[in-house]
Simulated scan of single mutants.
Amino acid sequence: MSALLSTHALKAWYGDFQALFGIDFEIRAQEIVAIIGANGAGKSTFLKAITGVLPVAPGNVVFKGRPIGGRKAHRVVAEGIAMVPEGRRLFPSLSVEENLCMGAYAKRPGPWSLEKVYGLFPVLKEKRKVPGTALSGGQQQMVAIGRALMSNPELLICDEISLGLAPTVIKEIYAALERITRDGLTAIIVEQDVLTAERVSQRLYCFQEGRVSLQGNSRDLTHEQISHAYFGV
């Protein structure tokens, strides 16, 4: 099966500082692929390069067989890629429902609507008129995921969605993600917890200092391999 999204010798800079050094990556349709790595390993930079936040060469990022590297972020969303950003980044002046509706601005056709998001996260329907930033951390994360789904993506990218959340809330968030991907959505998960990353993904990439230090089937990689790739020791 050909890749839904792939990167080829992907490099990225912040001014004169090079953050990524030739990343080769691929994800096939209906896969869940996890990315792990220490702080500063290049994980979030990689996501920014895919989603149009950082400029890269067109052929460095290929989606559904077409080069999309360097496209503006709103055009990447229109192509069918949505990101749940680290820190959620909800609009503080908007209600829960208004935050969700912001995700639909690209007007891509597909199955996701307000009612379907409310079916996935019923608590959001109860709180739909409440300011998004007035919710608990877990509920805010639900809004961020729902907002991304409202763009009807083919590829959902989640950056550190468990960060700062209680274990019971993390379990609830990932149970919802499992239902989403079971319906055919493809997902890239950047996750700080290695055990969670292994559990929820089919394949795993480890980044270290802007390079891929390890990749393979999540069930086949040993803890020794992951530890060496993660810490370099």
Rank of each mutant, 00 (worst) to 15 (best):
L5W: 08
T7F: 06
T7C: 07
K11M: 00
A19N: 01
G22Y: 04
E26A: 05
A29K: 14
E31W: 09
I32D: 00
G37H: 08
F46R: 01
V53F: 14
L54D: 09
L54A: 06
P55Q: 13
A57G: 00
G59V: 06
N60G: 15
P67L: 02
I68W: 06
R71A: 10
R71T: 07
K72Q: 13
K72L: 14
R75Y: 10
V76P: 03
R88W: 06
R88H: 09
R89L: 13
F91E: 07
F91P: 11
L94K: 09
E98Q: 15
G103K: 13
K107D: 07
K107R: 15
W112A: 01
E115S: 13
E115M: 04
L120C: 05
P122M: 12
K125W: 04
K129D: 15
G138V: 07
M142K: 00
V143I: 00
V143D: 03
V143M: 03
L156D: 05
I157A: 07
I157C: 11
C158P: 04
I161P: 15
G164K: 00
L165V: 08
A166V: 00
K171Y: 02
A176Y: 00
R179K: 14
T186L: 11
T186D: 04
Q192C: 08
V194A: 13
E198D: 02
R199P: 01
R199V: 00
Q202I: 03
Q208V: 00
E209R: 04
G210T: 13
R211V: 02
Q215V: 04
N217G: 12
S218V: 02
E224P: 04
Q225S: 04
I226R: 04
S227D: 12
H228C: 10
G232L: 12
V233W: 10
